[in-house]
């Protein structure tokens, strides 16, 4: 089982308390009607699916209830960091470890 640090509870807790919620930093366009089909397709369906560090959303479902962001290496399944929703994307170089 993965251990995940909730940036709101400031505790490292078992994965069973959390729910995965897809790629992070996907921003909904302010004016959806102004989007072309291609742009809308990109927003709805196109994801990065990287091999390596992945920016993703998690929710501390059975806990504080909050959504937050995480960087997880999809190869090692290691969490490089977690941070509060709304905080800027952390610089991968500063995270060290296996991050590239």
């Amino acid at each position: 089982m993965l251990l995940i640090t909730c940036p709101y509870c400031e505790e490292t807790l078992p994965e069973a308390e959390f729910a995965y919620a897809g790629q992070a930093h996907v921003i909904r366009p302010e004016n959806p009607s102004g989007q072309s089909d291609e742009q809308w397709e990109e927003f709805l369906f196109i994801r990065e699916n990287p091999k390596g560090p992945h920016f993703e959303r998690w929710r501390h479902l059975h806990g504080c209830g909050r959504f937050f962001n995480a960087v997880r290496d999809t190869v090692s399944d290691k969490f490089l960091t977690t941070y509060r929703a709304g905080a800027p994307r952390p610089d991968l170089a500063s995270l060290g470890g296996d991050a590239k």
Binding site: E11, L13, E15, A16, E17, G65
Partner: peptide, 22 residues
């Protein structure tokens, strides 16, 4: 409980998961 009950100090409380239930 997935988390360690000892991680909840006496006089504190937490919302957590017990046998699949919040």
């Amino acid at each position: 409980m997935a988390r360690d009950p000892e991680s909840i100090a006496v006089g504190e409380g937490r919302r957590t998961n017990f046998d699949g239930v919040t």
